[in-house]
């Protein structure tokens, strides 16, 4: 286990715990950015450059900004530090602990033959050729999904038709 992996894993886990545990919502969003950045570092450390950079662009850039903007738009006076009961944490934490025990048990019982091979060729050119030949249908489906999702997000956030105009 390399030192770089341990540091990045600690950043990721600490960011995730902070994102779930902070009282102020803006601190939650900032901890989330730390967690995403730690994951991007892990991808870069694994020599999967393209996914690491995409992670930084999409998550650290776009999704984090989107969440912060949504936080600021929906901010009201009493939601900044809301009183969250400990009952939810007991229930949620025990379910999560159960899931973790299941996952870790399955992991320790499985003989994974993952050898540390050399970094496979994952240059942008290779990825682009693959995407435009073998994976072109998923790519087009994703393009369609993104267009539909962006239009849908705008329509939902604008609200439905005005009552006067709808009853024409």
């Amino acid at each position: 286990m390399s030192t770089g992996f341990i540091i990045l894993a600690l950043i990721t886990i600490a960011g995730a715990i902070g994102a779930m545990n902070c009282g102020r919502l803006v601190h939650c969003a900032l901890s989330l950015v730390a967690s995403f950045a730690g994951l991007a570092g892990i991808y870069l450390q694994l020599n999967v450059w393209f996914v690491g950079v995409a992670q930084i662009l999409v998550y650290v850039g776009a999704v984090a900004i989107l969440i912060v903007v949504a936080l600021l738009v929906t901010r009201n006076a009493e939601s900044d530090r809301q009183n969250e009961g400990s009952k939810g944490w007991i229930a949620g934490g025990s379910v999560a602990l159960l899931v973790f025990i299941l996952l870790a048990g399955a992991l320790s019982n499985t003989a994974v033959t993952g050898a540390a091979t050399l970094a496979p060729d994952s240059s942008v050119e290779t990825i682009g050729r693959r995407m435009m030949t073998l994976y072109v249908i998923p790519l087009e489906a994703l393009a369609l999904l993104l267009t539909a999702a962006l239009l849908g997000a705008v329509v939902i956030a604008l609200g439905g038709p005005k009552p006067g105009r709808a009853s024409k």
Binding site: A16, I17, M20, W89, A91, V95, V99, F100
Partner: peptide, 20 residues
């Protein structure tokens, strides 16, 4: 990471934190 996210999504009351 999955279990931290699961615990938060189940325990928190704010919709945005659940989305996080």
């Amino acid at each position: 990471l999955f279990c931290i996210g699961l615990a938060g999504a189940l325990a928190r009351r704010n919709a945005i934190v659940v989305l996080i």
